[in-house]
Design a protein around this nucleic acid. Structure first.
Lengths: 247, 247
DNA sequence: TGGACCCCGTACGTTTCCGTACTGAAATAA
DNA sequence: TTATTTCAGTACGGAAACGTACGGGGTCCA
């Protein structure tokens, strides 16, 4: 998976304010928008499109408007697990906000979508020029940290069904429809469990009327019911994101 | 556990540069040190001393010189697990660096020690005045994020023995001796596993000559051997910390 | 339209870890 | 010293999830 392959550029000259649907970009002050907009470029990314490679420099930050990015931690023995997801509420390239130039984790589109991207250098430059922009980006980074911490909690204490429910809810929050176009295999990789385990769990969800499934896709039917399954493993990062973005 | 109970203040007038052993404080430029030093206060903290309470304002940041702070994520159903440890390489109160005023997680001394603390307001003020200070603190925050992500990885993919070995190594990195003064019960809480499970695993370590144990304490004997057990679940955050602090 | 491939359903024995609980030994308080 | 509490060792059945693997059905491409 190359970082550039399969990338589609939209042919807008300069991103126009009104059509911005990424929540971070939408929150920019007019002054910060002026700082950022000239460097934005609309892109459409397919599923599995890689946007960050561990220990390599970050080339662009992505502000998605649809789709879901998975951030996956990997170690040398090739153990891997998702440590967070990013959708239209945030951005990729959190390391840049922290003054680092490289990606820590693998990041790629779990569910394809479109958004805008900005070269890393321009992003850093903009943050250096505007304290308010930097402040907003740090809040976003903080929200992502919280999500990662709760992923650690769920990974250590929750059962497969609880973690799966949590994942579906987080994905659903970032999608405009109830359909989640993913195979069991990919869900399994995200959660760090067996593919067969996901199949069985989803089956149980379906029998309970929580979701419906078909090949390569599942659809949330009873969100409240799924929330019940996830219990309090879901919710805190979402509430904290809301709080951090409220001001 | 109150935040103030059992706190001991040292009677130094102003912290002197030479005796600073916290690595973050030690890295401050002379100018940044001038900004920070007047607000530092030496403290000795006993084990279980609480320094941060979830969702409550952070009152002080702590720069430990000895001892280990556990940062523990908790949810409403009272599931809890450690998401990171902090010793003389870092600081507590990472949220402040990100522009938030409250603690996300519970933080307390897992192993007692001493260090310096600084009121939150003074810390924020100092960061606002110095870009280089802020930059250093953000690097430290980044290092902590990386640790949390790898905790999520270990929680999801590693076996009990691997996670226990990882924890021992992280504690050892932050202690000046090979002795870790902790009960099995506390290790179990950190890892989110049964106390009995820790007992059995430590036993196995002891039989293999990796550690020695006595009531309320264990001692690392063969660090290399323990690293072998932890495999690649240990190491990346440590290497990244080194890199981030190298500049 | 046939073949190849991908995805899902299912199964089985096995490992890991849990929940619980009882015991004795060590440390601490009275 | 004695009483009390804390900590460690051990055990048992059971739940959860694992590794592996096989077959059938969908989907897509030639």
């Amino acid at each position: 998976m190359s970082s550039e392959a399969g990338l589609n550029f939209m042919n807008d000259a300069v991103s126009s304010r009104a059509e911005v649907r990424n929540r971070l970009l939408a929150k920019l002050s007019p002054e910060d928008w002026v700082l950022v907009a000239p460097h934005l470029e609309s892109v459409a990314l397919k599923e599995r499109q890689v946007v960050e490679v561990p220990h390599k420099p970050i080339t662009h930050v992505y502000f998605m408007e649809t789709g879901v990015v998975s951030v996956v931690a990997v170690n040398e023995e090739d153990h891997r697990i998702e440590v967070g997801v990013i959708g239209r509420e945030g951005m990729t390239g959190v390391s840049l906000v922290m003054g680092d130039d490289r990606a820590q984790h693998s990041a790629y589109l779990q569910i394809g979508g479109n958004g805008r991207r900005m070269p890393a250098a321009a992003f850093i430059e903009a943050m250096n020029r505007s304290a308010s922009l930097r402040s907003l980006m740090m809040k976003s980074a903080q929200a992502f940290m919280i999500q990662t911490a709760h992923t650690a909690l769920a990974n250590g204490r929750a059962k497969l069904e609880e973690r799966l429910a949590r994942w579906l809810l987080m994905a659903h929050d970032r999608l405009s429809s109830d359909a989640v176009p993913l195979t069991h295999e990919f869900l399994a990789v995200m959660l760090g469990v067996r593919r067969a385990g996901v199949t069985v769990a989803l089956h149980s969800f379906e029998r309970r009327g929580l979701i419906s499934t078909r090949r390569g896709q599942l659809t949330l039917v009873d969100r409240k019911g799924i929330e019940k399954v996830a219990g309090s493993f879901y919710g805190i990062p979402e509430a904290e994101l809301k709080r951090l973005m409220a001001e």
